[in-house]
Design a binder for these strands. Sequence first.
DNA 1: GAGTGGTCTAGACCACGGC
DNA 2: CCGTGGTCTAGACCACTCA
Lengths: 235, 235
Amino acid sequence: MNPLYLQVKKRITESLAEGLWNPGQSIPSEVELAQSFSVSQGTVRKAIDELAAENILIRRQGKGTFVASHDEEGSQLRFLRLTSTQNNKENLDNHLVSFTKEKATNKIAKSLGVNIGTTVVSIKRVLTFNQKPLILDFIKVPASSFRKLTSEMIVEKKGAMYRMYETEFGIQMLRAQEKIRAVAADADTSELLGVKKNTPVLSVERISLTYSDKPIEWRLGLCLTENHHYASELD
Amino acid sequence: MNPLYLQVKKRITESLAEGLWNPGQSIPSEVELAQSFSVSQGTVRKAIDELAAENILIRRQGKGTFVASHDEEGSQLRFLRLTSTQNNKENLDNHLVSFTKEKATNKIAKSLGVNIGTTVVSIKRVLTFNQKPLILDFIKVPASSFRKLTSEMIVEKKGAMYRMYETEFGIQMLRAQEKIRAVAADADTSELLGVKKNTPVLSVERISLTYSDKPIEWRLGLCLTENHHYASELD
DNA sequence: GAGTGGTCTAGACCACGGC
DNA sequence: CCGTGGTCTAGACCACTCA
């Protein structure tokens, strides 16, 4: 039999996935949860500890425990690892290049866990920092999960995709896996990023996951790393 | 005043840094530590929990708590994030290109926390996977910390640097920070890696740290990413 | 069976936030 | 002041390892 605290963690996670408690809001207090699960407070604590370590819950002493949200000050760029090498403050801007629907290729279908040929929304955009192009993004999400998604919404939301997924579609991006390579910019890429053809660019391929490790988004970012770098901590 | 468990953690960390307990060996049991610190077992537990989460200690149920070591099965490549995209098993080999001593430049000095002009050991090597060149590494360490380091040792140890730092010099690599970019291979790099000049390569710049976040090694890896990628988990 | 880490409990008290 | 999460304790029992 599983340890009790893992069962509690599972039940809390299920409630979160069901949307019983909304992002940014508080969940019941530890004592309340302990009572409703008929366990001690320490056991609930250990369950919440793990969820907090996974950035799914956020503890605030004296206030309560909250559901993590992308719709908050300072948590928008949680998954952007690219930072300025000079450490300046920068203004990020989003420029939509194209917004289409298409059929999932074999690769995209596998990444998103859908069948080949399933309709996906395909977004192409350029992110600029201080007016200069920095990242060319290709984003693909299953159309079925994002029925009312329009190009206007993306522009209006200023490209804060995960925030939009959360507030507009009730889909919470929890974690992601990235594969990073160095590639040469093709003609299209070089033009959009304003560099010469074959300039080396950082290729960052991302699969974003929600509860139960369900994929919700595939993304490919092509980044200029003349004045920026991808930061990674190892331990 | 700091929480008790953080004081305990600090004292345990100090003992580790002093080399009181050696890598791969077990530290005293939780009850013993609790007695010697005059705290409850739960408090020691919380301190060890954090050190285990940082991969500094390793718990083994029924056996004890051990000091993490690079000199163990399966922990040699703990910090190598580059993996085959095809997921094959691969044989890693180490080819020393050059081994010299030189004066630290401004940049290296800053990275290693030493004065400009301090003598550093400079290692240049090529890592091959399945006989093919994959990574060109530039490694620089302060000569003062590695007095008896010779090129023969590196060859003999098959390039397992962190293992060698630990077993031969008593220096434990605990964590690292990496900055990743895409750059074009210069003439020298392209020749050593067996690719055309200006091929895009992944530039991975690493600073390795030991206790108290003291830098022990600066490293630049230039990696081919035709059939490999750098894997990164975000949460 | 003895010794280790792992789980669980119950209760006390502390630190912080907000009414 | 009360309710929240954070710390600390003491003790019971479980699960695993090894002699």
